[in-house]
């Protein structure tokens, strides 16, 4: 111990001696560091930084309405958004795939016999079905079965006449109020564009139609409402309508729930996108033509630029004639 202390004592002046030039060398840095230290320790700094922090938090809260860096707690649950529908392999899924028109025809039958009791299809006229799912004679016969109000006639009165090809699909209710009154306040949406109008499109509607289950424990469903996990919020006004064997297909397809749902969703998909088949064909043509044009233009560019890209410039210095 003694010897060590002695050693330290002996060593310390040596160190001190050495540290002097170091301190001199670092004079600028060390002096500024002490200034920085005093700046850090000053009350003014503390006060102004606190003020800045409190001010920016207050400004953020004023601008965005919530405190920064704090997660918000919501009273909602993931089920309020509705279950995400699974992806189904539709016949029209591929880039070049058309609708299955036999399915559209069956789907129209399901729409007419089941959905049309509550849902309108305003944007589809009888003529739109011609050459898509039915022959013109079939459509004419179907349209004639329905009475339309037309007029006024020569005496200024409205009259009833059988439907014709140019008439639009008859609506089940004369107006929205009647539709709500007939469905306990819930408005059955028009189905013309429903596939485009819902997240998940055809997959969502198929899942909704086939997804009715009993509500899980703890979920209260009001009277007159039904539980469907795919519907945002879970409670839907529409009850399950598709049951096995509800309709009888003319082509002998077994009318199971999922078959009817698939067919009616295909029909509604066609109703939302009647241009679908033609659009894909035009797209194929456009891709072929435009890619061919691109290749040609690239070739022509290279062809025209070849001499310019490959030229070599020689410098031929002028001969000095003075020597």
């Amino acid at each position: 111990m003694l010897s060590r202390q002695a050693l330290r004592k002996a060593a310390s002046p040596l160190l001190r001696q050495k540290s002097i030039p170091l301190a001199v060398r670092n004079a600028s840095t060390s002096s500024s560091s002490t200034a920085f230290q005093s700046f850090l320790n000053s009350r003014l700094t503390l006060a102004s930084v606190s003020l800045l922090t409190a001010g920016s938090v207050a400004w953020y809260t004023h601008l965005y309405g919530s405190l920064p860096f704090l997660a918000e707690v919501h009273a909602s649950h993931a089920s309020d958004e509705g279950l995400h529908p699974p992806k189904y392999p539709w016949p029209q899924d591929g880039l070049l795939d058309t609708f299955d028109h036999a399915s559209i025809r069956r789907g129209y039958q399901v729409y007419r016999e089941v959905c049309a009791a509550c849902h309108s299809l305003d944007r589809i006229a009888w003529r739109n079905l011609v050459g898509v799912s039915h022959t013109v004679d079939e459509i004419k016969a179907m349209a004639e079965e329905i009475e339309y109000t037309d007029g006024p006639n020569d005496e200024g009165e409205m009259f009833q006449r059988p439907g014709k090809l140019a008439d639009y699909m008859p609506a089940p209710y004369p107006n929205e109020e009647a539709a709500r009154a007939g469905n306990a306040g819930a408005l059955p949406p028009d189905l013309s564009l429903i596939v485009k109008a819902r997240h998940g499109g055809a997959d969502y509607i198929f899942s909704l139609l086939t997804g009715y289950v009993d509500p899980p424990a703890g979920v209260e469903i009001r009277d007159g409402m039904n539980y469907n996990p795919f519907f945002p919020g879970g409670a839907i006004g529409m009850a399950r309508v598709l049951f096995d064997g509800l309709v009888e297909y003319e082509d002998g397809t077994p009318a199971t729930t999922s078959q009817m749902a698939k067919d009616v969703v295909t029909f509604l998909h066609w109703a939302a996108e009647p241009e679908h088949d033609e659009r894909k064909k035009s797209g194929l043509k456009a891709v072929i033509l435009l890619s061919a044009m691109t290749v040609i233009s690239l070739y022509v560019k290279r062809f025209k630029w070849t001499p310019i890209k490959n030229r070599k410039i020689f410098y031929d210095p002028p001969v000095d004639k003075t020597h």
């Binding site: 070049l96 058309t98 043509k285």
Partner: peptide, 19 residues
């Protein structure tokens, strides 16, 4: 040419196939 390819690709699905 495009139509014949398209019809072959979608054989049995279009209206002209079930008409």
């Amino acid at each position: 040419a495009v139509t014949s390819f398209y019809d072959k690709w979608n054989k049995g699905k279009q209206w002209k196939d079930i008409r």
